[in-house]
Computed example of a mutant assay.
Amino acid sequence: MWKRAEQTGSTEMRGVFVETLQEMMDQNKKVVALEADLGGASGFSKIQKSHPDQFLNVGIAEANMVGIAAGMSMRGFVPFIHTFAPFAVRRACDQIFLEGAYAGNTINIYGSDPGVCVAQNGGTHTTFEDMAIMRAIPTVEVYDPADGVQLRWLIHSLEHKKGVHYIRAARKGMPDIYAEGSTFESGKANVLREGKDVLLVAAGLGLKLALDAADQLAEEGVEAAVLDMFTVAPFDVETFRQQAAGKKLIVTVENHSVTNGLGSAAADILAEDGSGIRLRKVGIENRFGQVGSQDFLMKEYGLTVEHVYQIVKTNL
């Protein structure tokens, strides 16, 4: 069961990923890590040193890495692969589709620094469309963990889970949301805050924005519920419907394009239900990436607490 963190702080996500894999490798020799020549950026070079027989650097050949991982899966291994999110998804999409999902193999993909988390690496390394691509592939599960605690649990949960799993997560620090030892359920959203007026649905980087916006709204008497939809696919339709019922407005918050991401998943459900509840999306509006610090990019693309707050106030 999950609990909220009592103290604020931040945790480096790549450190959590590496440490968790090392713990699993100590106990399970079938767990392997594959890297596409970014071991320094991801921290996977530490795995190369600590578990050389369970590590493979394939070089700058992301599509080939997916193929190798698929082959290892067929031989009973549990592969975890890493590269930056655009290379994991755009460059290796056909291999993920055919050699992973279609063939029924198990591949756990860490696509790092999605969206504005890419910072100074610029537009070529920016992906605002990775969830859109991955959630459209049958059977693929898409995760957007909000902090290190959620990420650690997620990695452990995939050790014995079959299929293709895509984890989009920053490499560097993310604000602590959950208390140590929290556990979760794949495909099940978490209600972090109750409220009768507005529903804020968020995941990953967007979750802290939603929580802070809810605090700001509460000061003005607006009650905002906050839903952590960390499993974007499959989407938790049941919890979403329960929380949406009776609300005046729903706002989705995501570090992703507003096209075919978290907001679109929510919109599909509302359209099918015919509830008439208004939906507004906070995310990237039909733009490419650019060079800049993460703080700059968040302001540039409207991923701020103030923007979420203004969207609610304008549409209530």
Rank of each mutant, 00 (worst) to 15 (best):
W2K: 11
E6S: 15
E6R: 15
T8C: 07
M13G: 13
M13V: 07
M24D: 08
D26A: 14
E35V: 14
L38V: 15
G43Q: 10
K46R: 15
H51C: 05
I60S: 07
A63I: 04
A70L: 08
S73C: 04
R75N: 11
H82L: 06
F84I: 15
A85D: 15
A92P: 06
A92M: 08
Q95W: 07
A101C: 09
G104C: 12
P114F: 01
P114E: 01
V116N: 02
C117Q: 12
V118G: 04
N121Q: 12
M134V: 11
E141S: 13
A146H: 02
D147I: 04
V149E: 14
V149W: 07
Q150H: 05
R152G: 03
W153A: 04
I155S: 05
H156T: 12
L158A: 10
E159G: 01
H160W: 05
R171F: 06
R171M: 01
P175H: 08
G181Y: 07
G181T: 04
S182Q: 01
E194I: 00
G195Y: 10
L199P: 01
L205V: 10
L205F: 13
L207H: 07
L209Y: 03
A210K: 02
A210R: 02
A218T: 08
E223Q: 15
A224H: 05
V226H: 01
F230K: 02
Q242L: 12
N255C: 01
N255H: 00
H256E: 07
V258Y: 04
G263N: 02
S264A: 14
A266W: 02
A267D: 13
L270F: 05
A271N: 10
E272Q: 15
G274S: 05
G274H: 03
R278Q: 15
I284C: 00
G289I: 03
S293M: 09
D295L: 11
E306C: 03
E306S: 14
H307S: 05
V308S: 12
Q310L: 07
I311H: 06
T314I: 00
